[in-house]
Computed example of a mutant assay.
Amino acid sequence: MQRISTPKIGSAICIAVLLLLSSSAFGQKVERESRIKSPEVPEKALEYIEQTSLDKVKWYRETGLESISFEAKFKHERRWYSVEFSEEGVLEDIEIEIDLHQVPEPTRESIDKYLEAEFKRHRIKKVQIQYKQTSLQALIKEEVSKTDSPHAFELVVKGKKSRLMKLWEVAFSSTGKYISIDQILNRNSTHLEY
């Protein structure tokens, strides 16, 4: 049996810590999404969704590195919705999947310009419009315009920066201003996959 000397163990620990610190600097999103039944959902979140009288709502628990959230996913008038709640059942955001051509042209041009500069090659896999301070009932009843409300756009992009194609989640403001980019790691499904 071979013994490992203390300096080698110390070096290995230092390297592991440096790798962890450097990987967090690049903005990586690690999450695991699993289907759950409604009794496992925070009561406050369940009540919020029940107020809308929607059919066929599927619930998911999303576990990230630092947080747990709950998502209600459903289809309404040919649009996929994802409503995310905190662990306590507080509404965090509402996302609606849209087609890229539905993004206003000046905003789309800003997004395209950013993606062209950021990636050697890329393909947009999904576009979602994200609402932080708008009620689900107002969106469903179309009491607010889906493009006039304060919102952001979240894209899932398959992009190549160096040698490999990777999945990225890129967020933009309603005017196309870059907000954030995160590499998607160990993700077993995309936000609105059913």
Rank of each mutant, 00 (worst) to 15 (best):
R108N: 02
V170F: 12
L91Y: 03
L115M: 01
Q130A: 08
L139N: 08
I124P: 01
L91R: 02
E154H: 11
K160L: 13
S149I: 14
Q133M: 04
D112Q: 05
H151G: 07
K126A: 13
V157Y: 07
D93S: 09
A171Y: 14
A171Q: 15
L139R: 09
Q128H: 06
R163C: 13
I124Y: 01
G159P: 14
E95S: 12
E109F: 01
E118A: 11
H122I: 00
P104D: 07
S162Q: 06
Q102T: 10
I129C: 07
W168M: 08
E97D: 06
Q128K: 11
I124S: 02
I124T: 11
L164G: 11
V170K: 10
E92H: 11
K166Y: 10
L164W: 13
Y131Q: 07
L115I: 00
A152Q: 12
T134I: 14
I140Y: 12
I129D: 03
V157Q: 10
Q130L: 10
K141I: 04
L139W: 07
K158Y: 10
L164C: 10
L164H: 14
R163D: 15
H122G: 00
L136N: 06
P106I: 01
K141A: 15
S149P: 04
K113N: 02
L164F: 15
V144C: 08
H101G: 01
P150V: 07
I129M: 11
R108M: 04
I96W: 01
S110I: 00
S145P: 02
K141H: 13
Y114K: 03
D112C: 00
E109S: 08
P150S: 09
A171C: 13
P150K: 07
E92I: 14
A138F: 02
L164K: 14
G159C: 12
I129K: 08
Y131G: 09
Q130T: 11
Q130I: 04
V157K: 09
V144G: 07
M165A: 12
L100F: 06
H122F: 13
S110K: 07
K126C: 05
I96L: 08
L139P: 03
D99M: 05
P106K: 01
K120F: 00
S110F: 00
I94V: 13
E154R: 08
I140G: 13
S149T: 14
E97H: 02
V144Y: 09
G159L: 11
R108G: 02
S162H: 05
K146R: 15
A117L: 04
E95K: 13
Y114R: 03
V127S: 05
M165D: 15
A171K: 15
E116P: 00
A152I: 05
D112W: 00
I94P: 03
Q130V: 12
Q130C: 06
Q133V: 02
E116W: 00
R163H: 15
Q137F: 09
